[in-house]
C-alpha cells in the first residue's frame, strides 16, 4: 500500500507522519498517534463518537482520510483542556451529569466546543439541532442540553472578563 507523508498541526503540535493512503483519520489518531479519545461507534458517520475539529469545523473522523488532513489544524478531545485547566464544555458536562458510559462524550464535547463558537448564545432548540449529528444511548440528551447551556454561560462570562 502506498504511503504518504502527512504534515498537520495536531492539538497544537506540528507533526509529520507516514501513513497508508487509505488509512482513516480515526484509525490514524487512535492507532498511530495513540489518541484514543475519538471513538468508533458506526463507521458510517451517523453516531458522531469520532467527532474531531479540523480547521474550525466539526468532522467525523471515521469517514475522513488521514491524508486529507495534510496541512490542516486538527484538534481532538485530548487537546481541549489548556494549561492544565478543563475547557468550559468539559466542566459543564461534569457538573450537569451530561455523560454516563462516556463513549459518546469525546465526540459530544468536540461538537459542543465548535457549536458554541458557531452560536455562542443558543436556544434549547438550536442546541438540540446543533448536536443532532451525535448520538447518545445513555443520557436522553436532557443533561447534555443543560451542559451546553451552562458552558455557553461560562464562555460568555470568560469573554466579558477578558473584554
Amino acid at each position: 500500500m502506498a504511503k504518504q507523508i502527512v504534515k498537520m498541526t495536531l492539538n497544537g503540535q506540528q507533526i509529520e507522519q507516514l501513513v497508508d493512503s487509505r488509512t482513516l483519520l480515526v484509525h490514524f489518531l487512535r492507532e498511530q498517534m495513540n489518541l484514543t479519545g475519538a471513538h468508533i461507534g458506526c463507521e458510517t458517520s451517523h453516531c458522531g463518537a469520532c467527532t474531531v475539529d479540523i480547521d474550525g469545523e466539526s468532522v467525523k473522523a471515521c469517514t475522513h482520510l488521514a491524508v486529507q488532513c495534510d496541512g490542516s489544524d486538527v484538534k481532538t478531545v485530548e487537546g481541549l483542556a489548556e494549561a492544565g485547566a478543563l475547557h468550559a464544555v468539559q466542566e459543564a458536562f461534569y457538573e450537569e451529569h451530561g455523560l454516563q458510559c462516556g463513549f459518546c462524550t469525546p465526540g459530544m464535547l468536540m461538537r459542543s466546543y465548535r457549536f458554541l463558537q458557531e452560536n455562542p448564545n443558543p436556544t434549547e432548540d438550536e442546541i438540540r439541532l446543533g448536536l443532532s449529528g451525535n448520538l447518545c444511548r445513555c443520557t436522553g440528551y436532557q443533561n447534555i442540553v443543560k451542559a451546553v447551556q451552562s458552558a455557553a454561560i461560562k464562555l460568555q462570562q470568560k469573554e466579558s472578563a477578558t473584554a
Binding site: Y94, L99, G102
Partner: peptide, 21 residues
Amino acid sequence: RLRKEDARFIQGKGQYCDDIK
C-alpha cells in the same frame, strides 16, 4: 454527588476495549 468516573471520560482517557494495544 458528582461522578468520580467523569474525569477520565471528559478528557478522552477512558479505556475501552478497542483502546487496548
